[in-house]
């Protein structure tokens, strides 16, 4: 009877401990990764390859998402305004929303699925096939070889991909305003420049950088700590995507509270 009454609290406590334990292990893992950065000769020659895989190869999906996001933003803005608000505010809404929120967040979520899952699956497979153990056996630093270039590539390339995504989203919103909303370029640009501040771009870069750090480090963490066979790899991949997506949203709110 008592156990049944305490069961919900036990579950909550276990989840909290698991979360705290996971955060602690991730912290230790991140610390080890930072320490592995001293092996520049190991991760340096792998960095460009990872930047290309994580960043450049992710540009098409990021631009695809941001293009339609810009279209939808413009259309929904005009639908919401319903004549009560001047149409040039479509430019305000498209610009501000793409820069401050949807550009970084949607790009981060898309890349968490593509990049985070890829990293978790790749490292998880290496772990379950004992390739990581082989590296350790050869005294080759696995964190410097497997984790550091991916995390650094994510930190560098996420802002770059996000900036391109924001630019394409704004352009698609502008074209949508011209073609579907009977707005002029001058009207859209007036709204776009009306409340623009250079800090908006800085805010975008800060968020995207943090998202890059989170997506790649979480992907590496779950991949590096994969247990079991193929099922474990799948489980790690799923956990990596879910965790990084959740952390992206938490960080999104965090940066909004701290910086805006």
């Amino acid at each position: 009877m008592t156990e049944r009454l305490l069961a919900p609290f036990t579950a909550i406590g276990r989840a909290a401990l698991s979360l705290a334990s996971g955060i602690g292990r991730w912290g230790v893992f991140a610390g080890d990764t930072v320490r592995s950065l001293r092996h520049v000769d190991v991760w340096g020659r792998l960095l460009l390859e990872q930047m290309s895989r994580i960043g450049a190869d992710s540009v098409p999906i990021a631009l695809f998402i941001s293009t339609f996001t810009g279209v939808v933003l413009a259309l929904q803005a005009s639908y919401t305004f319903t004549g009560a608000i001047p149409m040039y505010f479509v430019g305000v809404l498209v610009g501000k929303t793409m820069m401050l929120e949807l550009g970084p967040v949607l790009t981060g979520l898309a890349l968490s699925g593509r990049v985070g899952a890829n990293i978790a699956a790749e490292l998880g497979t290496m772990r379950v096939t004992e390739q990581v153990d082989a590296l350790e056996t050869m005294a080759y630093p696995p964190l410097a070889y497997l984790v550091a270039p991916r995390v650094l590539a994510g930190i560098i390339m996420f802002p770059i991909v996000t900036v391109l995504a924001v630019g394409i989203g704004v352009v698609s919103g502008w074209l949508t305003s011209l073609q579907l909303l009977d707005m002029s370029t001058a009207e859209f640009l007036r709204g776009l420049t009306l409340f623009f501040r250079p800090f908006d771009v800085v805010f975008t870069v800060i968020k995207a950088t943090s998202f890059g750090l989170i997506v790649t480090s979480i992907g590496c963490y779950f991949g590096f700590h994969t247990r079991g066979g193929a099922a474990g790899v799948g489980q790690s991949t799923t956990r990596a995507v879910v965790a990084s997506s959740m952390v992206i949203l938490v960080l999104d709110a965090f940066w909004a509270v701290v910086l805006l």
Binding site: L48, S52, G55, V59, M157, I160, V163, V205
Partner: peptide, 16 residues
């Protein structure tokens, strides 16, 4: 791939 990576980086910097 190197050229594509360079193009992406330069493009993003120019856009920003």
């Amino acid at each position: 791939r190197e050229a594509w990576l360079g193009l992406v980086i330069v493009g993003a910097i120019v856009v920003a």
